[in-house]
Each structure stands twice: as structure tokens, then as C-alpha cells.
Amino acid sequence: MNLRKMQTGQSGTIASVKIGGSLGLRIREMGLVPGAEITVTGRAPLYDPVKICINGQTLTLRNSEADHIDVATK
């Protein structure tokens, strides 16, 4: 499932990150690599960006960036 479509509170394991270049690296640098476990913990008041929990830290990314991340949800 695409990260953008996940509901608040839903968890899963990142299956793939389909983008290269600076955004692709940036996403990976922050720990969003295949195999990482994430939980969507909320969204900004205007629904974008999305807030996720990974390894006990909180990350945010825009929906347009979340589009590149596929998650195998539980």
C-alpha cells in the first residue's frame, strides 16, 4: 500500500522506495529504507504533511514524497 493512503495508527514494513536523486537519498538517509518498520502517527491539520514513527523517532514528509514509498501493511 502507498504510504499516502495509510490511516493514522496503521503500521507496516517499507517494501520499496521508488525514487532516486536527491529526494531518494534524502528519504533513505532519514532511515526510510526497505525493511524499516513504520507507524503513521498523525497528519498536519491540513492533512499534509504526514507524521510517522520509525525506530522510536518521529519523521514528517509531504504526501507528494510519501507517494514514492510502498508499505506492506499489517
Binding site: 529526494l23 534524502r26 532519514m30
Partner: peptide
């Protein structure tokens, strides 16, 4: 130009 990625940490 492309906007800079927003992917960032919300520090505790």
C-alpha cells in the same frame, strides 16, 4: 526549481 524535500525529523 524543485522544492527541497521536506522529509525531516520532529525532534523529541
Amino acid at each position: 526549481g524543485e522544492s527541497t524535500p521536506f522529509v525531516m525529523e520532529l525532534p523529541p
